[in-house]
C-alpha cells in the first residue's frame, strides 16, 4: 500500500457509551466507514442520532469506548491528550455552527491562533494569515473584533482559521445552522470550492439540502450507520 492509498479516516467497529450514574447509554454502535483523500462527506442524522459524538471522535477531541480509529493510518484510539492536541493542531481544521471565534481577539489574531499553538515563526504566521484573509476578502477587516462583522463573515473567518494551517481534513459541524439561507448558500459554495481544490471535508448536518453538496452522505440513525 502506498501513501496515497492510505485513507484519511478509517473506523472499525467504533463504540461510544456514556454513563448516567450506573446506567450505560450507548451513543454510537459499531461504526465502520472509510473516507479517502479529497472526499466530501456529509454525515446526516436527526438530533440525538450521535452526529456530534461521532464528530468529536473523528476530530480527535474524544476517544471511542471501543473499536479502532485510524487517522492518516495512525491508530488514535488510545493516544494521550497531548498527542491528540498535536494531531488536532497539525491535521484538523474545525468549523463550528456558532463560529466559536474568541470575542476579545481581532479577526487576524483569531486566524493566527492555531499557528501560534503550533509555534509557526512569526513572519510565516503573518504571511499565511494575510494570504488566507485576502482569499476570503477579509483582509480589510483584519483589525475588527468578531462582534463587529456579520454572521457570514464570522463563518468565513472560522473557515479561514481552519484552513490556515493546511489541515488534512476539515470538519464542519452544522456550518450553516446559524445563518440565513442566502448566507448559508454562500458558505456552501466556499465548501464546494474547497472540495474542488482537493480538500477532504466532513460535514455534519441535519438538512438534506446541505448534505446534497457532498459527494457522499452517511446517514446516522440512533447511533448506527444506515446501510
Amino acid at each position: 500500500m502506498t501513501m496515497e492509498q492510505v485513507p484519511v479516516i478509517q473506523t472499525r467497529n467504533l463504540d461510544k457509551s456514556y454513563y448516567l450514574g450506573k446506567e450505560r447509554i450507548p451513543v454510537l454502535r459499531s461504526i465502520s466507514f472509510i473516507v479517502g483523500q479529497g472526499e466530501y462527506v456529509s454525515i446526516m442524522g436527526q438530533s440525538g442520532a450521535g452526529k456530534s459524538t461521532l464528530l468529536n471522535i473523528l476530530a480527535c477531541l474524544d476517544t471511542p469506548t471501543s473499536g479502532d480509529y485510524f487517522f492518516n493510518g495512525e491508530n488514535i484510539s488510545s493516544l494521550s491528550e497531548n498527542r491528540l492536541a498535536e494531531i488536532r493542531n497539525r491535521s484538523i481544521g474545525f468549523v463550528f455552527q456558532n463560529f466559536n471565534l474568541l470575542p476579545k481577539l481581532t479577526i487576524a489574531a483569531n486566524v493566527e491562533l492555531p499557528l501560534i499553538y503550533n509555534s509557526t515563526p512569526r513572519p510565516e504566521r503573518q504571511r499565511r494569515v494575510r494570504e488566507i484573509l485576502e482569499r476570503f476578502g477579509l483582509w480589510e477587516r483584519r483589525r475588527h473584533k468578531p462582534n463587529e462583522i456579520s454572521g457570514g463573515q464570522k463563518q468565513r473567518v472560522a473557515i479561514a482559521r481552519a484552513l490556515v494551517k493546511k489541515p488534512s481534513v476539515i470538519f464542519a459541524d452544522e456550518p450553516t445552522g446559524n445563518l440565513d439561507s442566502h448566507t448559508a448558500g454562500e458558505i456552501l459554495v466556499v465548501f464546494d470550492d474547497l472540495s474542488a481544490e482537493g480538500n477532504t471535508i466532513i460535514m455534519i448536518t441535519h438538512e438534506r439540502d446541505v448534505a446534497r453538496h457532498a459527494s457522499r452522505v452517511i446517514h446516522l440513525v440512533d447511533g448506527e450507520i444506515l446501510p
Binding site: A59, L61, E81, N82, A85, E86, N89, N100, L113
Partner: peptide, 16 residues
C-alpha cells in the same frame, strides 16, 4: 470554559 474548549479544539496543548 467555552473559550478553553475552543482553544483546545484548535490544538492548544495542556502546557500552553
Amino acid at each position: 470554559i467555552h473559550e478553553i474548549g475552543v482553544r483546545k479544539a484548535l490544538g492548544a496543548r495542556r502546557l500552553q
